[in-house]
Amino acid sequence: MKHSAKLVSIVTEKVFEVEIIRLLEKAGVKGYTIFEGGGSGSFHHHHDNISPMIDGFRIVKIETIMSDATLAEQIAMSLVEEFFSEKPGVVSLSDVEVFRNQKF
């Protein structure tokens, strides 16, 4: 049985990971997944292989799926307004379909 839900995706630097997770948990998300990687943007180069010295500058993508679409949008808006007004990061929302709705 499929249910519609919202996927909140946050791309930022690893150094901000702990703070974001704290915000997500406070907002009531039930779980999240973190992916590490590299990339390039307006602010800084993020190589995934050539900078072994500073771990905190790696790119991370934090994803969480929420069955409550309104709450997901609130979280995304507050991240953009409060957290990413100054810090580098990208927040996006997508519609997804999940199977076990109780998990989200």
Partner: peptide, 13 residues
């Protein structure tokens, strides 16, 4: 660098 990144996020690394 990571401490300064967190402390002064508007600075260009």
């Amino acid at each position: 660098p990571p401490t300064l990144r967190a402390g002064i996020p508007s600075a260009n690394p």
